[in-house]
């Protein structure tokens, strides 16, 4: 029989359990609030910005000069800088990352993996300012020996360092995908008398392709958002990069969307100026680009994943 007193106690216990649950739920909501915050902040100031600068000018003008007169807000030069930097970075990170993934998944001994994998992770843990310093102080002088015409600030050296930084992202995700391929498929290959390299290239890689491609996209999205290495080593010169002239495109300074934001952020612009608001318009463009890539990466991974049970 429930006495009024025990009922009261039970009610109190329930109340406590529920409020604990409420507190946990509230902490989980912080991540939702963060997303909403990002979207609202970026949109609100972008709307303000586009009331002063036409959206047509923003996406078609070929000059980006937010602080120095004559002021012009054309996002194309800094998008072309970002694409150049991202292309070169992917050129470094993708082949190396995939080969490393193949080696770690198909060839390496357990002992080798145990030592090398954490060492690879260290690459991703080094701050990007440090990579920027490496690029500027060590890599550029080295490149000067190969390309004497290279500028002190150039996109190539930054790309090489950031490419190395992104190797573990691509290697570890691709490796996970390759290790998920069941051994029976490999055994079938060996049963047909083909070599390990043939098994890898005709069985393992095709079977894990969705995971590998999703790792590429994630790596590319990382490169697009990378800020400090480019800011320090690539020179902050906004220009439309012409890939048809590779020497000029890759050995000269460029400005990316991120380094353009740092330039505005460190200048003395006030909270009411158009230059300040342009930060949010560029930030929104960047956010949309990386978000789309991340969503595509997840979609490919989930949708085209071969299911082995």
């Amino acid at each position: 029989m429930a006495t009024p007193k025990s009922l009261h106690k039970e009610f109190r216990a329930d109340l406590k359990e529920n409020s604990v649950r409420g507190v946990f739920f509230a902490t989980a909501l912080v991540s939702i609030i963060t997303t909403v915050g990002i979207v609202v902040v970026l949109f609100a100031d972008s709307v303000d910005f586009f009331s002063q600068v036409s959206i047509v000018e923003f996406f078609t003008s070929t000059r980006w000069s937010p602080v120095i007169k004559p002021i012009e807000f054309g996002v194309l030069p800094i998008i072309s800088g970002t694409l150049t930097f991202t292309f070169l970075t992917a050129l470094v990170a993708i082949p190396i990352g995939v080969l490393a993934a193949i080696y770690l998944s198909e060839y390496a001994s357990e002992r080798f993996r145990r030592i090398v994998k954490p060492a690879l992770e260290v690459l991703a843990g080094i701050p990007t300012v440090v990579y920027g310093y490496f690029a500027l102080i060590y890599v550029t002088p080295l490149l000067k020996k190969i390309f004497p015409e290279i500028s002190t600030f150039n996109v190539l050296s930054a790309s090489i360092m950031v490419g190395i930084m992104i190797i573990p992202t691509i290697a570890s995700l691709s490796e996970d995908a390759m290790r998920a391929v069941p051994n029976s498929l490999r055994q079938a290959g060996y049963g047909l008398g083909i070599t390990k390299f043939q098994v890898t290239s005709t069985v393992v890689v095709p079977a894990s392709l969705s995971g590998i491609i999703s790792s590429f996209i994630l790596g590319i999205s990382r490169a697009i958002g990378e800020t400090m290495a480019v800011t320090i080593a690539a020179g902050n010169l906004s220009r439309i990069v012409n890939w048809l002239n590779p020497k000029e495109a890759f050995l000269q300074p460029v400005q990316t969307m991120t380094s353009a934001m740092v330039e505005v952020g460190t200048s003395d612009v006030t909270g009411t100026s158009v230059a300040y608001k342009s930060l949010f318009a560029v930030g929104l463009t960047l956010f949309v680009m990386t978000m789309l890539l991340n969503l595509v990466s997840q979609r490919i991974k989930n949708k085209y994943r071969e299911k082995y049970e």
Binding site: V41, S221, G225, T227, T258, M261, G265, F280, T290, M291
Partner: peptide, 13 residues
């Protein structure tokens, strides 16, 4: 996956 500089804008805004 959001670039860290965007968090800077969030903090600023």
């Amino acid at each position: 996956g959001v670039p860290s500089i965007v968090y800077g804008l969030l903090g600023l805004g």
